[in-house]
Design a protein around this nucleic acid. Structure first.
Lengths: 203, 203
DNA sequence: TCGGTGTGCGGACTTCAGTCCGCTTACTTC
DNA sequence: GAAGTAAGCGGACTGAAGTCCGCACACCGA
């Protein structure tokens, strides 16, 4: 079932002039390097443009905003993650019971946050972030698993609220400002999934 | 039990010179008016300073940031809300069973979001927002109710993740970009609370 | 190979949040 | 009431995101 995603793809940009493609690579490359060296919060768009050897206008023409650029830098990793979810081994991929897959999904996302929270924070800007292809894939995945686990529930709403618990702002606050361990965050996620996924108590 | 909050209070600012107090009032007044007239997203700090008849430096000295100013504008409403939670009538106030109080709490927050989402969005900036006094009161309230409902659960984590479902960004996306009705959002909250609040299934 | 054309380039410009610092003035003390 | 002083004021300044538009050159057809 979970194979019929129509993965909204992020990059190819149907037909692109050669100079445009080259500049895009340059920009992504420079951005990746700078974000990596100094942390996403300490790199300005001007610096990225300069390091890439292109004008600022070009940078914004390609990527539209700082948040989009950060998302584009993350997209390779995201592609691998989606592959693991859709066709990988259980419990992340198909084969395990839905609640276990949901748990594995959240744990994997928390691991990504642990490794790249700053970049993920930069990619999460304003309410529009929920419309981003990557987020939509996550949502759809969670919805399908919830449906499998409990066809009666309102998967659409529950998926949104479950995913809200995995947002970068909350993660950074809990992990770095409150010092909560990654393991405890994962246990919190497991508990939330266990509580959410059972069919409702009979009244 | 819920009376032993040590409410982190927001405004009084122990002793203030007369001109400082006057300027603060002017600023709050102008901000309230402009936010109201044109929407929080379309008002710059310069405009507020000008409308208040003070310099920009004064504005920032008083309120520190745009987000703090928005929070301050909301604080009167927040005070009333806290009063209703702590000493008001059930189901929001004490007297009702904890799950009902939790439901009423979320519904009240959703009503506030419906009326002031833009302002709440402006007040929610970056991971630091979770350290704001108002948020901490909400969290403590939810934790106490969860503890009452189910002393075994990890109230701290569950409170954070439940509250994440009531964030302004998610609300604006669901309500205004996806067009989901307020009633459905409330029903989603009720379902989430029902599922969260029961004690875990025996294994 | 050589125009014609429209996509894409670049960097000056705008806007806005937030900072800095020399000047002013409300309160205190005598 | 006068003088001292520190809290407070204001607006010029900084830095960063995002826009605009005249110019260049990559690609296409001949």
């Amino acid at each position: 079932m979970s194979a019929e995603f129509d993965l909204p793809q992020i990059e190819p940009e149907s037909f692109e002039r050669a100079d445009a493609a080259r500049n895009r690579e340059r920009i992504l490359c420079a951005a990746r390097r700078l974000f990596d060296e100094r942390g996403a919060g300490c790199v300005s768009m001007d610096e990225i443009a300069e390091a890439a050897g292109v004008g600022k206008g070009t940078l914004f023409r390609r990527f539209g905003s700082r948040a989009s650029l950060a998302a584009a830098v993350l997209s390779e990793r995201e592609r691998v993650f989606q592959e693991a979810i859709i066709r990988g081994a259980p419990p992340l991929g198909p084969g395990a019971p839905p609640s276990e897959r949901l748990i594995a999904f959240g744990e994997a996302l928390l691991d990504t946050l642990e490794a790249h929270s700053e970049l993920l924070l930069a990619a999460e800007t304003g309410p529009a972030r929920f419309a981003h292809p990557a987020y939509r894939v996550h949502r759809l995945h969670v919805m399908l698993l919830l449906h499998e686990a409990d066809p009666e529930c309102d998967q659409e709403m529950l998926a949104e609220t479950l995913l809200a618990a995995l947002g970068a702002e909350l993660f950074i606050y809990l992990r770095h400002m409150r010092g909560i361990s990654l393991e405890r965050l994962k246990e919190g996620w497991r508990e939330q999934v266990r509580r959410t996924v059972r069919s409702p108590e009979p009244v």
